[in-house]
Design a protein around this nucleic acid. Structure first.
Length: 593
RNA sequence: GGCCCGGUAGUUCAGUUGGUUAGAACGCUAGCCUGUCACGCUAGAGGCCGUGGGUUCAAGUCCCAUCCGGGUCGCCA
């Protein structure tokens, strides 16, 4: 091992292409690959931006040549020399016309053979990648994604700052609130028996900032939710958090879709038409079975409840009688690719979402088969086929159940069929707003209504009279930004009337005491004058995932967590010493692993 | 908490109805090689078949449990 001594990097790899031959260059980085030809050695030097070929031969000082022949992958070096044209060029890399003919070489750090090859184009399983994340991050793909993330982050800040948003850091140690996701809790040492929570979002603070006269606020906010992970969900994540005063729904949407159209133009060269189309929640559910519809393809849901009333098939009739519906998807012209076996698989998918089964009509060339038509009257059969626009070559997939279940099952089948049959264009981005969300949803488990968005969401004016009589029918001034079936962000106009807010808490089953205990500071703040305000938040990780064209959110996070909410490299969460627990007034009950 | 998939050299994988000494590629080690860039050639090392039980004359292969990872339902205001 050597020190850099008086050598300092003069150029990054990508900068060398602009230099004339013969330029003196000192480059630094890691050895990506060595090719020792005997009398001649080539080594690819990798830095933050790419690779530069180092060359050594009989003209190289003897001690330097000997050092070069000892080089191995991942050694960290600094090399000084002259740029020269290659005798044989490599057209596949930007620096492929030149090489650094090295006269001075220092090995700054040696490296053991890594557990996997540090290069693109090889499969490595996720566990190993995460355990050795620092090696994975050296690989071009993940490395450049992290650089892209940084660039997007800067563009986001520039967008909001240029539009006079004020960046404010809100606290990470906050008060736990009962609604919504499970909180991560942090015990207080100073106040025995009391706990902070980590924020699920800076929601209340940003509303308070509007009351504080900041007018427009934004923040790249770390948020924490102690819930199970998914490919698009991490327990800690980054949200682009925004709040604006003196606005209604349209104003928030216009301001923030400007961010997305700008980012897509700048980073992807794609002009996304704006304003984005709006679709109500009710329409999204009815047509696509989802509140985040992928509108790049058809396969829309068809409600056949009317023709199924009194059709003679108990399964259909019971669903309708129970307040549910019978709906179907017509997989147009897909009879050959959706075999009987495939229908069985789709049935399993439907069952995952709570459907009891999947009825079908397959109109294949070899003949028609159906699981339900034998139970139906001829009249009902022809009426249903007409509603579904069924023709030879089609497959009808029918679910009869409660509406929630029908939507969930058919919505999922839609996506699965489209994916398997490549029914959409990967390069198309259908941005949209889903609006008019229900204000409440019924929580079966607790037998009461809960806020669909959050308890501070403003109801639609015309629905305010129905708040007490028909809460299930009330719609909210809430909106989600959706693209290709992904919820990129969402927000709402907030209640700024303390009386209405108090009424909301009551409807949500809060006693006055509990509302005061949990949200008293907000209620009090409203008493001193609150501008109308609203905002939204983007899932920054999801946005980057989309823009980097990755499948998993883990591909855009430097040190992500895995399914058990741990982080494999550092090994957290971990046990702590008894002394630490004592100081926090926590009794140790957990068994050692 | 439920369901599905996976775990075999350092890595990615193959391994037939349970049956000789568990293979390949890449990587690694050594030697040769002056224009390579997936360098080439020669030789070599490298395996608790995730872990623990069981069935069997015999288990990488079958059964049970468990751990780890991935996907997903619930959950995620």
């Amino acid at each position: 091992m050597e020190t850099m001594g008086n050598l300092r990097r003069t150029h990054y790899s990508y900068e060398t292409v602009a230099l004339p031959e013969g330029s003196e260059v000192t480059a630094a980085g890691s050895i990506a690959k060595c090719r020792d030809l005997g009398g001649m050695i080539f080594a690819d030097l990798r830095d933050n931006y790419g690779v530069l070929q180092l060359a050594f031969n009989e003209g190289t000082p003897k001690d330097v040549f000997e050092k070069a022949s000892a080089l191995k992958s991942e050694y960290v070096v600094i090399a000084k020399g002259k740029l020269r044209a290659r005798e044989s060029v490599n057209k596949t890399i930007p620096t492929g016309l030149i090489e650094l003919y090295v006269s001075e070489l220092r090995i700054l750090s040696e490296a053991e053979t890594p557990p996997f090859e540090v290069r693109e184009g090889i499969n490595v399983n996720d566990e190993l990648r995460l355990r050795y994340r620092y090696l994975d991050l050296r690989r071009e793909g993940l490395h450049s994604t992290m650089v892209l993330r940084s660039d997007i982050s800067r563009a986001v800040r520039e967008y909001y700052l240029s539009r006079h948003f004020i960046e404010v850091e809100t606290p990470v140690l906050i008060k736990s609130t009962p609604e919504g996701a499970r909180d991560y809790l942090v015990p207080s040492r100073v106040q025995p028996g009391r706990f902070y929570a980590l924020p699920q979002s800076p929601q209340l603070y940003k509303q308070i900032l509007m009351l504080s006269g900041f007018d427009k606020y934004f923040q790249m906010a770390r948020c924490f939710r102690d819930e199970d992970l998914r490919a698009d969900r991490q327990p800690e994540f980054t949200q682009i958090d925004i709040e604006m005063s003196f606005v209604d729904e349209e104003d928030v949407r216009r301001e923030n879709e400007g961010l997305v159209t700008g980012l897509f133009r700048q980073f992807m060269g794609i002009d996304v038409p704006a304003p984005f189309p709006c679709m109500t929640y009710a329409e999204a559910m009815r047509r696509f079975g989802s509140d985040k519809p992928d509108t790049r393809f058809g396969l829309e849901l068809v409600d056949v409840s009317v023709v199924c009333e009194g059709c003679g098939f108990g399964v259909f009739e019971n669903a309708i009688a129970g307040g549910g519906s019978v709906r179907l998807i017509n997989a147009k012209g897909l009879a050959e690719s959706i075999s009987r076996k495939e229908i069985d698989r789709l049935t399993e998918t439907a069952k995952t979402y709570g459907a009891k089964g999947l009825a079908y009509l397959r109109m294949a060339e070899g003949g028609e088969t159906s699981s339900y038509e034998k139970f139906l009257s001829d009249e009902a059969i022809s009426a249903l086929r007409k509603e579904a626009n069924a023709e030879a070559g089609d497959v009808l997939l029918v679910v009869a159940d409660k509406d929630d279940t029908v939507f969930a099952a058919l919505g999922a089948l839609r996506l699965e069929i489209a994916k398997k049959n490549s029914l959409f264009d990967e390069n198309q981005f259908n941005f949209m707003w889903v609006t008019d969300f229900p204000l409440f949803e019924y929580d079966e488990e607790n037998g009461r209504f809960v806020a669909k968005h959050h308890p501070f969401t403003m109801p639609k004016e015309e629905d305010i009279p129905k708040l007490d009589t028909a809460p299930g029918e009330c719609r909210a001034k809430a909106y989600d930004m959706v693209v290709n079936g992904v919820e990129l962000g969402g927000g709402s106009i907030r209640i700024n009337d303390p009386a209405l807010q108090a009424r909301m808490f009551k409807l949500l089953g809060f006693t006055d005491e509990r509302a005061k205990e949990n949200f008293g500071f907000l209620m009090e703040a409203y008493r001193y004058g609150a501008p109308p305000h609203g905002g939204m938040a983007f899932g920054f990780d999801r946005l980057v995932t989309l823009m980097a064209i990755k499948d998993s959110i883990r591909e855009v996070i430097a040190f992500p967590k895995v399914q058990n909410a741990g982080e494999p490299m550092s090994g957290c969460p971990d046990t702590v010493e008894a002394k630490q627990l004592d100081e926090l007034h926590i009794a140790s009950t957990a068994k050692e692993p």
